[in-house]
Nucleic acid binder design. Structure first.
Lengths: 179, 179
DNA sequence: CGGCCTATGTATAACTA
DNA sequence: TTAGTTATACATAGGCC
């Protein structure tokens, strides 16, 4: 059998990491964005789902897809969040609690990595000793630099403070805080 | 040649119309939603894009994907829209102007119809929602679900509270808070 | 539901125009 | 940039747990 020379290399496997070559990345972005939107539209027609997608290109150019419209889906999402959050079925994080999808995990991980990037030095600090953190003047720093753990602590601190304040206003007792 | 009996039918082609069978539709929704989110995550890692997706299942259950987070992408999109809509580079419409894809056309048509139906009260609603958010009991929610703006507010609230508490402990004056 | 399987439909990487 | 082509990698319909 004469092996005919292949005209193209065909689709090649590519590693799932940021594509280095600028032009190549741009082309891939365009094609995959189109593919993503097509998949979305198919999901809509096949299953009668409502979908809203917002994409920012590496060059920060905005693209969007929506059915019936971006606005309607967004509005629904936002207003839902404002009503009652506790009993609402959690969209992303909590579905993972019952049966963890790899993808969801990946997403969470990537978000955590983002957090890490924001304050690497802080991660070190926290490792060294968590106590010292509570004595540093984090409130003089931008929120963006805090990681999740610190934000959690900030939240508890605030909630505790609120309890104390409420208690004080009701009972009239002194706070007993030292700062 | 012994033709081995095929174990499965393999993937079959399906018409691009709403799947009638309820159970089948549900299964397809789950699978394709997972696929959509995976494609999105790949777009993010390969091209460094930012993506936010909101999906409502046929049963109106919400699902979302976001990188770095749904909130951050949404915030960016909304704030951008609030600034200047006119001169903004149109996300979806204009690519169709040069070479019209069926999908994009379909989408645009449906969106136009939606817009007509709903009118312009949406922007108003969104603003109202933003305000309403700041008055909801965010402290009962996990930190992870808050976006930057909300975290900023949380921080200021905490700092303000601290000031008040400190002031109280020093001056002995009542707090004058109502909760 | 979500996982796992296989056969097959599709999306797309690499290239060309 | 966007538009085809081709060869392949990947997603997924249909089944079964």
């Amino acid at each position: 059998m004469m092996s005919k020379k292949k005209e193209t290399m065909g689709r090649q496997r590519i590693p799932m990491v940021r594509i280095k070559k600028e032009t190549h990345r741009q082309v891939t972005f365009s094609k995959r964005r189109a593919g993503l939107f097509k998949k979305a539209s198919e999901l809509c027609t096949l299953c009668g789902a409502e979908v809203g997608i917002i994409v920012y290109s590496p060059a920060k150019k905005p693209f969007s897809f929506g059915h019936p419209s971006v606005e309607s889906v967004l509005d629904r999402y936002l207003s839902r969040n404002n009503l009652s959050i506790a009993q609402e079925q959690k969209p992303q994080g909590n579905t993972a609690a019952s049966g963890v999808l790899n993808m969801e995990l990946t997403q969470i991980v990537s978000q955590l990595e983002e957090e890490k990037k924001k304050g690497q030095a802080m991660a070190e600090m926290r490792k060294a000793n968590a106590v010292r953190w509570s004595m540093t003047n984090w409130w003089e720093r931008p929120v963006e630099e805090m990681n999740m753990v610190q934000l959690q602590e900030m939240k508890s601190a605030l909630v505790e403070l609120m309890k104390i304040v409420v208690s004080e206003t009701i009972t009239g007792k002194p706070l007993g805080l030292r700062m």
